[in-house]
Amino acid sequence: MSRRRHVLPGFGLTMGYTWIYLGVLVLLPLAGLALKTGTMGWGSFWAAISSPQVVASYKVSFGISFLAALTNGVLGLIAAWVLARYEFPGRRVLDALTDLPFAMPTAVAGIALTSLYGPHEWIGGLLAPWGIKVSYTLVGVYVALTFIGLPFVVRTLQPVIADLSAETEEAAATLGAGRWRTFWRVIFPSLLPALLTGVTLAYGRAVGEFGSVIFIAGNRPFHTEITPLLIVSKLESYDYNGAAALGFVMLAASFLIVLVSNGLQGWGARRRVA
């Protein structure tokens, strides 16, 4: 492993700095969390992560995130298609706005959505006569999680749609396939890996989301309380073990989601080469 293998200088310096920074800031503290959980003993760990209130919060965090990610899958696919393929007035503005949930602070998104969807407000007021309550219900959690997941599907799909080869579509058209059939049989399968990757990323982001949700959710235990909020309330009552155990579960879930999305990305890359 000598210098001779590299034309450019700086390998040792930048690599060393990268690992030290990563180690001190991220890896060691995360190891501390794992270690803390390890010292708890299985019995108290299991008790902490399986109490009824906690299980109810999993249903909100993991379940509503799933619905939000699915919504982003459908609408994000349409949005990516429209932004990549069509030319219309305002396209550039919509394209630039796609990243708004990424740049807007979650607390600001939280109070903005809560105000919009309150029973007497702009959108909430329109829905109220139909008996649909959004703010302080699970629907509100769903709205917030859809908002923050929106960029992921669009941004993962856009470059793939731009790279689609026109020839396969032309071939399908020449062979007499209608546009609808071409889409489902030719285009959709080649978009599928990227679509699933985007949905997984949106899901991963939604599962851990905190700021935007706590304003709109109402945070009623057993109903609209999310798991990250439970971690915070355990910390506030100095239950470090309980907080660490829940943190460990969330961390494991994040690792799993990243693993799945990496696998999906690999699948997409292989398909594109093939």
């Binding site: 503290p29 995360l30 501390g32 969390l33 803390k36 979650t106 990323l201 991963g204 982001r205 599962v207 851990g208 989301e209 905190f210 700021g211 990250p228 909020l229 971690i231 915070v232 910390l235 470090y240 907080a243 660490a244 943190g247 969330m250 961390l251 994040s254 989601i257 990243v258």
Partner: peptide
């Protein structure tokens, strides 16, 4: 991909 809450929690534990 990690919940921001965990980003705070790890330093509290430390």
């Amino acid at each position: 991909w990690i919940s921001p809450v965990i980003g705070g929690l790890i330093y509290v534990l430390l």
